[in-house]
Computed example of a mutant assay.
Amino acid sequence: MRCRYVIPAEEVPAGNLVLLGGVDASIFKTATIAAMNIEDDLHIFRPIKHMTQSVLKIAIEPIAPSELPKMLAGLRSVNKSYPLVTTKVEESGEHVVIGTGELYLDCVMHDLRRLFAEIEIKVSDPVTKFAETVLETSALKCYADTPNKKNRLTMIAEPLERGIAEDIETGRVNMRMSAKERGKFFEEKYHGPNILLDDTLPSQVDKKLLGTVKEHIKQGFQWGTREGPLCDEPMRNVKFRILDASLAQEPIYRGGGQIVPTARRVCYSSFLMATPRLMEPIYYVEVQAPADCISAVYTVLARRRGHVTQDLPKAGSPLYTVKALIPVIDANGFEREERSAVMVWDCFLGHPRNRESI
């Protein structure tokens, strides 16, 4: 829209930028648009995969409560304009915007205030999106009864084998695969473990009866892992094993209203008995500075729980490159503090006449 000319056209050859109107209501993030009368086989583009994730979130609200509809309309536009932005409404009623970092969210809020909503918006301090996990196997077998006391599920939780969570997140294995393909993937690479594992024995549990409530158990499991018991954050790297299931013979007593919340509760109890922990996101940062300023870089990183992974000179220049890991929750204002510390340190070392004043 900031091009020099906008020219109406019936068709456009490859290599040009095209503005389409009237399609935004049907598209969320990305889509493949094709003509209705096309005769060739359609080639659908795969959704864009990004190198990073949105882990920093802010809560927003309009200064004037009457302008809430304008802010919501602006959020819908922002959600389509920024590929990595996520917006949601918390149980408390807060409207939350999740982005990749400070600068990213600053750009989002600038567009929301000046371009899409055109209103003044109040923003909270940024907080970090955590994940919940476990370190050990549940100390006890945990069970939960349905409200009608006619069904019981027994589970334990334990950490996933190394690499499975990453394969799921990167899409190497997903629920769109057939059960045979998914089973073969885990059998060849991880010898069978999954996130929700039916570990019951046919001699103890009626498998046919268990199969009738399988979808309800999955729904409760997905609900529980989406909002963990520690702080309502998603679970990660946890494997739940169903060890026993006592189910009513009458279908009316084992409906979704009974099984779904029960499966969620037993996931929570087994999770809490398996040494739960919070996982925080980490930024990978790279700092380039003169050799004399490296000590200032280390000082700022240490103050923010940073961990240096590499420190080496940059070939052909007087600069050093420091690569480090820093928790996202401690990275707010890191760039400004780093620049300030390096500039003061450089002034102190490079200009002896200023030493007394400094």
Rank of each mutant, 00 (worst) to 15 (best):
K184Q: 12
L17A: 09
E120C: 11
V55R: 13
E187P: 00
C3P: 12
L42C: 01
T299M: 10
D106W: 10
P126H: 10
P193A: 04
T100F: 03
P281H: 13
C347P: 00
C231D: 13
T299D: 09
T262D: 01
M155R: 00
S317Y: 10
R265T: 06
P281I: 10
V55C: 13
T262F: 04
R277L: 11
G228S: 07
E102H: 07
D311W: 09
T309C: 11
R114N: 04
P147S: 04
L140H: 14
Q204Y: 10
I195A: 04
P276C: 13
M36Q: 09
A25P: 01
T30C: 07
F28G: 08
L84M: 12
R236W: 08
E158L: 15
D330F: 00
V12R: 03
K323R: 14
K70F: 09
V205C: 03
S81L: 02
H43A: 12
T87K: 05
E169L: 15
L56R: 08
G101K: 05
T299G: 14
Y104D: 03
L84Q: 12
V328I: 14
H110Q: 11
L135N: 14
W223Y: 05
A315W: 15
E102F: 12
V260S: 04
S317G: 09
L325H: 14
I58F: 09
A64I: 10
P313Y: 08
L75Y: 03
G74I: 06
M273H: 14
R264P: 00
T146V: 01
R305N: 10
P193K: 07
D24W: 07
H191W: 06
E169M: 15
E90I: 00
F348E: 09
V300M: 07
E39P: 01
M1E: 07
R254D: 00
K141N: 13
V173P: 00
L278Y: 15
V308S: 05
A144R: 04
E94G: 00
E181Q: 09
I164G: 01
P229I: 11
A9E: 07
E337D: 13
M343E: 10
V300L: 03
K208L: 04
S357R: 00
L272G: 03
A331V: 07
H95P: 00
N194I: 12
T30I: 10
G15Y: 08
Y284C: 03
L103W: 09
V213E: 09
V213W: 11
D111K: 10
L349K: 05
P352F: 13
V266P: 03
